[in-house]
Design a protein around this nucleic acid. Sequence first.
DNA 1: CCGGGTATACCAAGAAATGGGGATGGTTTG
DNA 2: CAAACCATCCCCATTTCTTGGTATACCCGG
Lengths: 250, 250
Amino acid sequence: MKQYYLTEELAFEITNALTQDELFTALSAAAERLGFDHFALAYDRRGGSTPASLLVHDYPAAWAQVYVDFDLGGADPVRRAGERSMTGFEWRSLPDLIPLTKGDRQMLEVGRENGIADGFTVPRHLPGEASGACSFVIGPNSRMQEEVLHVAEIVGAVALSAARRLVGVAPPKGRPTLSERQRECVLWTARGKTASEVGAILGISEETVIQHLKTARDRYDVHCRQMLILCALFDGLIGFADIYDWWHDH
Amino acid sequence: MKQYYLTEELAFEITNALTQDELFTALSAAAERLGFDHFALAYDRRGGSTPASLLVHDYPAAWAQVYVDFDLGGADPVRRAGERSMTGFEWRSLPDLIPLTKGDRQMLEVGRENGIADGFTVPRHLPGEASGACSFVIGPNSRMQEEVLHVAEIVGAVALSAARRLVGVAPPKGRPTLSERQRECVLWTARGKTASEVGAILGISEETVIQHLKTARDRYDVHCRQMLILCALFDGLIGFADIYDWWHDH
DNA sequence: CCGGGTATACCAAGAAATGGGGATGGTTTG
DNA sequence: CAAACCATCCCCATTTCTTGGTATACCCGG
């Protein structure tokens, strides 16, 4: 069958899913049509004051429980790698995206023992709003069919869009914003400066810097500077390069 | 020609582009092969002392200048819509994604008068790092060929990955800088926990947590926890999702 | 005009982080 | 086998952060 029509057909079923169950059914059918043994879609909305998430998968029950335990410890290399890739990627390419820790290798091995041998993951991120990933997975006795990965890429992204619709789109203005001065203080803090040092840099008092950071923390409803920095980073108010380039220049 | 081989061929040329000029050439060829009149790729790495962005396009010179002026003023509806879509979108779908202002409509109209009648844009975002969009555009006397949009979607994302590479991105480190236990302590710190709390969570003493964090800081040669967290995040040892999921589950 | 937001400045106390030092026992690697 | 790494535990002093409170002046929009 021509790939175009296959893609259109699978995308159509997914786009028309009105409930989580229908999405499950459509994704299950898509995985089967594409020669995968399992699928998993995880979508997390983060912006604003009403976080929400959606997880649909057809993993073996034993693996699903193991996975949750690994996940709490931050041991999901696939998800982390998805923050480094604009395109879908095969799991065997993980070391090209992130360094694998011992815990990561362990997780992949346990997955293999539980019928999760390899996969192709489609990650997507919307700044300040949400992230998601849709994975198509093969078992130990299956072969990754390279010729369907383009279809999987498009279908996976369509599925993430469907998940976004089901979860509900966060209000565009829902997330906190910082004033320019607050943002500057957060950025210098991320660069490792104390409040006193930031004050000297910006030509204001240390107390004023403290006040700006306090206001910024209140805005995001977090209680420490590391969480504040991470919020600003995720929302795109500051970027890795703001911090890294400055470090390397000094 | 079968779409799969067309996609593979175009993606191959783009992936092998070593300079901005080669990327231009490859994208120009891709646009022509797909029946588009123009293309434009914009990639913006967030922040940095030297703003690292890349813009390659073959727009008519008159429109290019107008476009840059609109874009600098933050008045590009296509870019704004790209923050709301996980898949490529046609410009005629813009009102489904964002409310269009009078200025937006004016811009689209001026574009039409300058040979930019409609387009298909592939947006991509990486949390904390960068955003980009690759557009394929038709003029007033052309028809959008729906049957090539899947190809355009994949090729566009591959082009953005190439742009990322050209702008510069650190290769992943082979071996993780931190031990598994150190990484865990950093992750819980990023989740906003004090050393004492991390100790309770992991079943070890507060002093042990402090020791792990100290060793981790030494590994990265940084002097405070925010810098440590950012290094681990940048390396891909912890992910935004690892941090955020936990915040909102508790 | 008034209220809200922004920028600036100050105070205090308690909690937490950082840098420096020490140690033991087990595992891995060259 | 020896060195390095990993995980665990302890001590101390100093600095910094967080939370709570106070205030003034300016700007902008309804």
